[in-house]
Each structure stands twice: as structure tokens, then as C-alpha cells.
Design a protein around this nucleic acid. Sequence first.
DNA 1: AAAAACATACCAACCAGTCGGTATGAGTCA
DNA 2: TGACTCATACCGACTGGTTGGTATGTTTTT
Lengths: 210, 210
Amino acid sequence: MSANRLSSAKRIPARAKLIDAAHLLVRRQGYCATSVDEICAAAGVTKGAFFHHFASKEALGAAAAEQWTARAEELIFTLPPWVRIEDPLERLLAHIDFRLFMIDGAPEDFTCFVGTMVQESFASSEVLRSASDASISAYCERLAVDIEAAIALYGIRDGVSAISLAYHVQAVLQGAFIIAKARNALKEARESVLHLKRYIKMLFNRVDTQ
Amino acid sequence: MSANRLSSAKRIPARAKLIDAAHLLVRRQGYCATSVDEICAAAGVTKGAFFHHFASKEALGAAAAEQWTARAEELIFTLPPWVRIEDPLERLLAHIDFRLFMIDGAPEDFTCFVGTMVQESFASSEVLRSASDASISAYCERLAVDIEAAIALYGIRDGVSAISLAYHVQAVLQGAFIIAKARNALKEARESVLHLKRYIKMLFNRVDTQ
DNA sequence: AAAAACATACCAACCAGTCGGTATGAGTCA
DNA sequence: TGACTCATACCGACTGGTTGGTATGTTTTT
């Protein structure tokens, strides 16, 4: 029994702590500006532990992107009560309301890890670009299932496709994050998401019902 | 008379070459990943010249943001023929078409310098954050003038404000850039701008006229 | 002549990544 | 039960190269 070690049952593995620290720091500072030493310090582990679990900083980025997908699936598509709303259009609008509600506090707490990382890596690291793409596309494809159900039930204007609208939702959110960061305010970012909600209601001819 | 120097009339000053190189490299790699040495090499000047014109890398970033605003004003709001379309709504829709048309080739050629830079600097450099904000907001305020004219002439649904819609346009574009970078394809990014165009037409009750 | 516009050489700090070593717990067998 | 082996997890000093920035000298323009 060692005093400075927690029991194996209660100890959070270094790997998970490193990924959590990466999520936090990269969202605040960007991928390149965040050093391995900084991530280790934030995670409370040493550099030796870092390179025991990850072959490189790039490998951590890819693993953190994968974890980000799982986190989004849980926090957005599984845990919230509104995911059990039966009507698919009401569920879709609740989804947008939820994303609007998430835009609160500091940008590093509501912005997207992979959206930030891909900006710096799309041309220089195919590993990070495709890992980010996988995360964003997984979100969109999951969202498209709900949109498709709403289309099947209510129809949609102009033959808009579910997956195309899902990517548009993602684009508005990513864009709103940039506006929030630049403005150092949330007003314009939130209003942009409200524009998105109005657009979706119009597509489904639901403009009258607030 | 020196052979390896151009005459003063034809020589592009080092300052302008450094800003151009920064625009190119930062859009491709990000702000942090682009080193001062790299910018100097791309501009064809030495490090001494760099620090003669700019007090720091941060100062170059701020100057490049200011230049980006002037560049956008010229390339988007002055030079194109469609800016002289009289009807403000037609002009607005032509603006969206133009932005859609710009999404072509490599992301580093159509994406936004300040949008990329602000992601990495919003929390760590107030200088770069406010410089980026100034550039984005200048674009939005300029665009809002045209939107306001369209509203005055045709009215708009739900009392949508011109400046709010302008920021939404900007958000969709910034988001589309991220999608394009992540996907390594232009389809989803372009479709997102088409969703934006459809939304604007709906707001102005112009859904029937293609 | 004087100032502005460069160029060259250099520096301390920091970077990602390496490496030899230790701590710990599970499995094995007498 | 207890000595032995082995794999995994983790440690921290170290390295070669790169970073933003500086000090000083030279050329060009006014």
C-alpha cells in the first residue's frame, strides 16, 4: 500500500486525464499553441506517461477526436430528456434549442474541439483532418436520422435532403462559435442559431406555431 | 545602380510582401503553426526586415487583419460588377451567389484569414482577438447596409434585423469553411450556403422566383 | 548627411520526443 | 504461502532542433 497512489479502482487512468486536458486546452488555445508539457501539467501526469500512452502529439489529437465523438453522442443524443420526444420535428427543434442553450459561459466551454483542431491541421496532417472529419460527420449522420424521420412524417420544402440540412446545422454552429470567439460576446452567435431554427420551421411550414 | 535590386517604383515593399505571405500561410496552416522564419522565406525577405516593420509576430497578425478588411472591401464590395445591381434584394442574393462561387479550389484560397486566426488567439491575445473582431464586424456592418435597404423596400418576416442577418451570413460562411476543411470536399460547404440563400429568399417571401 | 530599409549573426527559451529506470500487480509453481 | 517472472504504467532528466526576438552592421533613399 503506497500513500501517494490511489487504489486501482478509484484511480482515473492517465490516458483519460490526458484526453480531458487536451479537450480543455485545445478549445481554449488551439492545437499548435498547446504544448505536450502543458497538457501533462493540466492532467497531472509526467511526459513519460504521455508518450507511454500516445506515440506522438498527433496520436493524442486523433484519440481526443475519437473521444469527442463518444462524448457528443452521450451529452447530445443520449442523456438529455428531450431526446425521448416522440414527434421527430419537435425533437429536432428541441435539439436546436439545446445547442442554443449550450452557448453560454466561456467559448472554451461550449465550442467544438474537432472544429478548432481541423482548422490548424487540415493541410498539414491527414491523420488529424480525417479524425476531425469522422467526428463531425458522425454527428451529422446521427442528426440526419432525426431529420429524415421528420421529413417522412411532415414532408419538406424544395426536396431538401436530411443529410444536407444536418451539415448546415453543423456549419451554423461552427460559424456561431467563431463569431462568439471574435465578438467576445454571445448575442450574435445565439441569434445565428435562432435564424437556423426559423429556417428549419419554415422548411417544415411550422412558422405559425412558436 | 545595383543589379539585384529593382527600382523603387517597381519594388513591392517588404511590409506588403510579409502581410501577403502571412495571409497565405496562416490560412493554410494556422497562426501558431506558421513561424516568423517561414513567413520571411515565403515573402523573400530576412528576419531583420520582419522586425524592422513589425514589433512582434502578434503585431504582424494585427496588421494582416487590418489589411484583410481592406482586401475584402475591395474584392467583395467594390470590384465585382453585381455590386451595381440597383435592386437591393437582388444585390444581396448576388452577394450570396458570389460567396458560393468563391468556394472553389483549395481551402487556403477561399477561407477567411481572421476567422482562422481568431480561433487560436481569442483567449490568449486580446490584440489579435479585437483585430479579428474589427475585420469580421466591418464586413457584417457593410453587408447590413444592403440588407437594410432590401428590408426598407420589401419588408422582412418576423421583424428580423439587418445586422443580425448579416452576422448569420458570416456565421454560415465561417462554418462552411470549417466543413470544407474537415470534409476535404466542397459539396457540404456549398450546400450550406445554398440553405442560407433559400432562408434569405423565404425571409423576403421570394421563394417562387428562382 | 541622416534616416529609413534592409541583412547577418546570434541568443535564451521552448519544443516534441527519447531513454534508462522504477513501481505495481497478476500469474506461476514449488 | 512466498519467491520468481513478466507486462504494464509511469517517472523525470536529457537532447537536438526550432522558436520569437535582439544586436549590430550595411545599403538605399531622401
